[in-house]
Amino acid sequence: MNGIRTYNKVYKIGIIGCGRISKKHIESINHNQLFDLVSVCDKNKSKLEHLNLKSNLNTYQDFELMISSENLDVVSVLTDSGSHENIINKIAGKIKNIIVEKPFVLTTSGAKRVVKKCIENSTRIFVVHQNRLNKTVEKLFELKNQNFFGKIFLCSVNLYWSRSDEYYNSDRWRGKWISDGGAIANQGIHYIDIIHKLLGDPYSISADSSRALNKIETEDTALINFKYKDGCLVNFQLTTAIRPKNIEGSISVFSEKGFYMIGGEALNELKAVKLLNYKANIDENYVIEDVYGKGHQIFYDKISKSIKNNSESEFDGINFINQIRLLNAIYTSIETSSKIIFDNRKDYKTKLGTYEN
Rank of each mutant, 00 (worst) to 15 (best):
N97G: 06
V100I: 01
E101L: 11
P103E: 12
V105Q: 03
L106F: 03
T107I: 04
S109M: 11
G110F: 00
A111K: 06
R113L: 13
V114K: 06
V114S: 06
V115C: 09
V115G: 07
I119T: 12
E120N: 06
R124I: 13
I125L: 12
I125T: 08
I125G: 03
F126E: 05
V127G: 01
V128S: 15
Q130V: 07
N131E: 12
N131I: 10
N131S: 08
N134D: 07
K135P: 05
T136Q: 11
E138M: 15
K139P: 05
Q146K: 14
F149E: 05
G150H: 04
G150L: 07
L154P: 08
L159N: 10
Y160E: 15
Y160P: 03
Y160L: 15
S162Q: 06
S162T: 14
R163L: 15
S164K: 03
D165M: 11
D165A: 10
N169E: 15
N169T: 14
S170Y: 05
R172Y: 13
G175W: 05
G175R: 02
W177C: 05
W177S: 02
W177R: 00
I178Y: 06
G181T: 01
G182V: 05
A183F: 01
A185L: 01
Q187T: 14
G188N: 04
G188I: 06
I189G: 04
Y191L: 15
I192M: 06
I192K: 03
I194A: 00
K197C: 10
G200Q: 02
D201P: 02
